[in-house]
C-alpha cells in the first residue's frame, strides 16, 4: 500500500463498527473518566455532612472560631458563574471551530478555536485566583474536609481543563501553520470530544459545590 493509499484509508475508516478507532478510543476513555469524577464527587458529598464540626471556613455557612473570629461563607458564586458560562460557551466555540475545520476554512478555524482557548484560559485563571483567594482567607487542604475535598475535586477538574487547553493550543498552532486541513479534522474532533466531556463534568460539579447548600 502506498503512502497515499494509506492516508486515504485513514480518512475513511474501514473498521468493523465503521467508527474510527481513535474516536472509539476517546469515547472509551471518557467512559472510564466518568468513574474517576464520580468517585471524586462522591468523596466530596460523603464528607459534606461531617465537615461542619471542624474548623472553618465553610462554603455556605458562616463559622465563629472558639477564639471569636468570624469566618464568612467563602464561596463566590458570581465569579464562578461567569467562568462556568464561558466554559459552556467554549463548547459551542469548539463545535464552530470543528465545522470550519471540516469545511477547510482556516480563518474561521483559527478564530473559533482561539475563542475556545481564551475561554479555557479564563476558566483556569479564575480557578487560580479562587484557590489563592481561599488560601488567603484561611482555607487550605489541611484546614478541614471541605478544603481537602474541594481542592482535590476542583483541582483535578482544573488539571483536565489545563490538559485540554494544551491539547487545543497544539492544534491551534498546527492550524496556524496550515497543517490542520479538512482531511485531518478528526484530530480536532477527538480533542473536542474530550473538551465537551470536561465541560459536562463541570456542569455537575458547579451545582454540587457552589449551588447546593
Amino acid at each position: 500500500m502506498s503512502d497515499h493509499a494509506a492516508h486515504a484509508a485513514a480518512a475513511h475508516p474501514d473498521t468493523a463498527t465503521g467508527i474510527d478507532s481513535r474516536k472509539l478510543a476517546i469515547w472509551t476513555f471518557i467512559g472510564s473518566e466518568c468513574l474517576f469524577f464520580a468517585t471524586l464527587i462522591s468523596n466530596y458529598l460523603v464528607h459534606k455532612e461531617t465537615w461542619l464540626t471542624g474548623p472553618g471556613p465553610f462554603p455556605h455557612e458562616a463559622w465563629t472560631s472558639p477564639a471569636g473570629k468570624v469566618f464568612e461563607p467563602i464561596i463566590e458564586i458570581p465569579l464562578v458563574t461567569l467562568g462556568t458560562a464561558l466554559l459552556l460557551f467554549s463548547s459551542l466555540f469548539v463545535v464552530l471551530a470543528l465545522a470550519n475545520a471540516q469545511r477547510g476554512n482556516r480563518r474561521g478555524l483559527l478564530l473559533w478555536l482561539g475563542c475556545t482557548l481564551l475561554c479555557g484560559l479564563f476558566f483556569v485563571g479564575m480557578q487560580v485566583y479562587e484557590f489563592t483567594h481561599f488560601v488567603h482567607k484561611g482555607l487550605t487542604l489541611k484546614t478541614n474536609l471541605f478544603g481537602g475535598s474541594f481542592f482535590v475535586l476542583t483541582g483535578f477538574h482544573g488539571t483536565h481543563v489545563s490538559i485540554g487547553v494544551l491539547w487545543l493550543f497544539t492544534l491551534w498552532i498546527l492550524a496556524w501553520r496550515g497543517k490542520l486541513t479538512a482531511d485531518k479534522s478528526l484530530n480536532l474532533e477527538i480533542a473536542a470530544l474530550y473538551w465537551h466531556f470536561v465541560d459536562v463534568v463541570w456542569v455537575v460539579i458547579f451545582p454540587v459545590v457552589y449551588l447546593i447548600k
Binding site: 464528607h47 461531617t50 487542604l141 489541611k142 478541614n144 474536609l145 481537602g148 475535598s149
Partner: peptide, 12 residues
C-alpha cells in the same frame, strides 16, 4: 495533610 481517612480530622 488532608484528613479523608483520618477520624481525628473528621474523615472516615
Amino acid at each position: 495533610g488532608t484528613n479523608f481517612y483520618v477520624p481525628s480530622g473528621g474523615g472516615d
